[in-house]
């Protein structure tokens, strides 16, 4: 009898890493759709281009490392990194911007550390930050919502051949608020800040990402700890300051629905490899991210702070894990440290 001699358990759930990642990418579709509606085809082009680069870069490095390329590409983690990064950068991004960003995310931030599961930092955020500090002009060239360029223009922008790119730029809500904070009349005059409950157009982007995130929660791809703690940290930190001075500090609703807040809560911070692992650890990790985002947005030098906050907390995740181990059955107290 040719019997299979393997170890228990003999039954496994049908969950697969590749399928998990695919679900994550699916969940970004609502956000992608809204971005396209508001800003044109730039984001879609970026997403497709980024996915191509990511697959190629990962395959190249795996080959150089002597690993089986097919097996490792199947887990779709490179594609997810690419999608997340492409969604984070402006739709007017030229092709080389995405190339450098995705390339460094995959190669520097992921493969050089040992591949999937070994990177201490969120690769998409590393790529984003690298681009942000290297090409501040291109990375802040957002469009005004509603004035979406057509496909041809988007394509020209992508190929970096559109001469009037700067004429198209519009500020984001967070940009505007930073500029005019403290000046109530100016704030009231800014069109971008006149959305229903947050920045114009951008609020729907965040709602779309929230929908995608809820889908992930429902499918149990992610647990509730990180998104809830993230949003709670951000909102509850903004609340007292807004109550104190609503002209200088934005409302919690504004913070929660502008920039990459929802995107970060459900898609970025939940990256399992770089986040904390224990239950309490995740709560603390995400809450601190939320707090840090508010701090950098309101008091720091950058309009949107999700990337920096996530990277900083990635640094702290091992220490958080150190102190938040669960109490094992049969023991009195939870252990600390690694023994």
């Amino acid at each position: 009898m040719a019997l299979l001699h393997v170890t228990s358990p003999h039954a496994t759930s049908s969950q697969r890493t590749g399928a998990l990642m695919r679900q994550v990418m699916l969940a970004t579709l609502p956000g992608l759709a809204v971005l396209t509606w508001l800003f044109g085809w730039g984001t879609v082009i970026n997403v497709i281009w980024a996915m191509l680069i990511a697959a190629a870069a990962e395959a190249a490095v795996l080959k150089a490392r002597g690993k089986p390329v097919g097996l490792y590409l199947r887990d779709n983690s490179a594609l997810v990194t690419a999608v997340l990064l492409a969604l984070a950068i402006p739709p007017t991004a030229p092709w080389w911007l995405t190339l450098i960003g995705v390339g460094s995310a995959i190669i520097l931030a992921k493969q050089l550390y040992g591949g999937l599961g070994m990177n201490p930092f969120n690769p998409a955020m590393v790529g984003y930050v690298l681009l942000l500090i290297s090409f501040p002009v291109e990375m802040t060239r957002w469009l005004a919502p509603g004035a979406a360029p057509d496909l041809a223009t988007s394509w020209q922008l992508f190929l970096d051949r559109y001469p009037g790119a700067d004429a198209l730029t519009g500020a984001t809500p967070l940009d505007s608020f930073r500029t005019w904070a403290g000046d109530a009349s100016a704030l009231a005059a800014e069109p971008i800040l006149q959305g229903r409950f947050a920045g114009l157009g951008w609020e729907w982007v965040n709602v779309a990402f929230l929908a995608g995130g809820l889908y992930l929660l429902w499918r149990r791809i992610i647990t509730w700890h990180i998104p809830v703690a993230f949003l709670a940290g951000l909102g509850l930190c903004a609340l007292p300051f807004w109550l104190y001075d609503p002209v200088r500090f934005a409302s919690p609703l504004f913070h929660l629905f502008s920039g990459a807040a929802m995107f970060g809560a459900f898609f970025i911070a939940t990256d399992p490899v770089s986040a904390a692992t224990s239950r309490w650890g995740r709560l603390i990790y995400a809450a601190l991210i939320g707090v840090l985002i508010w701090v950098i947005r309101s008091l720091g030098g950058y309009p949107d702070a999700v990337a920096f906050a996530v990277l900083l907390l990635n640094l702290a995740a091992p220490t958080i894990d150190y102190y938040t181990q669960p109490r094992t059955y049969g023991h009195d107290k939870p252990k600390r440290g690694t023994g």
Partner: peptide, 15 residues
């Protein structure tokens, strides 16, 4: 050349 700022900044040195 548009310049690749990160190479001039400290991260570029480390890399």
């Amino acid at each position: 050349y548009r310049g690749f700022l990160v190479a001039i900044l400290p991260p570029g040195a480390f890399i």
